[in-house]
Design a protein around this nucleic acid. Sequence first.
DNA 1: GGCATTTAGTTTCATCTGATACTATATCTC
DNA 2: GAGATATAGTATCAGATGAAACTAAATGCC
Lengths: 163, 163
Amino acid sequence: MTAQRQLSDPPAGELKLDAYLPYRLSVASNAVSQLIARAYEDRFGLNIPQWRLICVLAEDGGLTQGAIVARTGIDKVTVSRAAQGLANRRLIARSDHHADGRSHVLALTVQGAQLHAEVAPLALAYEAALIAGLSPDEVALLKRLLGRLQGAADALSGGAVKG
Amino acid sequence: MTAQRQLSDPPAGELKLDAYLPYRLSVASNAVSQLIARAYEDRFGLNIPQWRLICVLAEDGGLTQGAIVARTGIDKVTVSRAAQGLANRRLIARSDHHADGRSHVLALTVQGAQLHAEVAPLALAYEAALIAGLSPDEVALLKRLLGRLQGAADALSGGAVKG
DNA sequence: GGCATTTAGTTTCATCTGATACTATATCTC
DNA sequence: GAGATATAGTATCAGATGAAACTAAATGCC
């Protein structure tokens, strides 16, 4: 049924989609992201960037949008939109920056903190369900390897694009 | 260096964005995908779905779009659009299906096969650059773990959504 | 054979995303 | 302190995505 592959194949290794790491990574990530995005959207009306902002603000307190961009790498346009959505729902407050009139300091409101407290267990439960069956060592290694991949991709991207 | 997690952890665990696996996975995947998407787009005018179709057709020969969807999980709309784009550029041919008038059989043209032969080494080089510094064992484990995550996400998604 | 249902693929639409352009403020140089 | 430049954030635009509606052909049922 499948085509016979013969000697004419390139020597330097073969490209099989199912074994190709970027593909595997993308497919796995999409599956996980969609699962989680739907859970947050359906139950709390939050999209992924909004939820990330809430997490960052819950962890780090008052931050400017620029600081969030620096901390997370999320695009500044995405941060701007997420912040607007959250502010409209009074989940975050934007207070004037004491020294920079262009900037605002974002912080969770009481409602925002309550929502975070409500969503966080769900998020952790999803993570637990996803890694069920993996040993702690495997999970730790997975996170480490993902960090390596991301670092390598960023380095290659910077190198290739910026010269 | 890494935080020791022990009994002192809060009862249900704490949510730290940087340690949250779905987040790490998404960030790593986006970094890798963007890197590769730009490379294919800039040099060959291919987007990711188009490149995936080319790979699948190079591996498996003549397939219908439905077979590609079944094989890869790519959305049928995405497959349709990618196939249109590739057919317009004469990189694939669509011949009538012998028994089903709704369906067409997709196969690489000579040009399409040439393009595949040209892009594949680049794709493999990117993969090699990304995993440079990782041991073969680590890479194998990473792929296995990604498969597990994807399977878990699919199972949870089916279970939660469909009831 | 004729009608209902299913299936392959396309079109449409609503949303998300990020690049680019823009506004307003801040900083730097003289 | 005035003008040039840089920066924080927003608005606009173009492309990607996938859900749902749609078309055309196949299959099932009687």
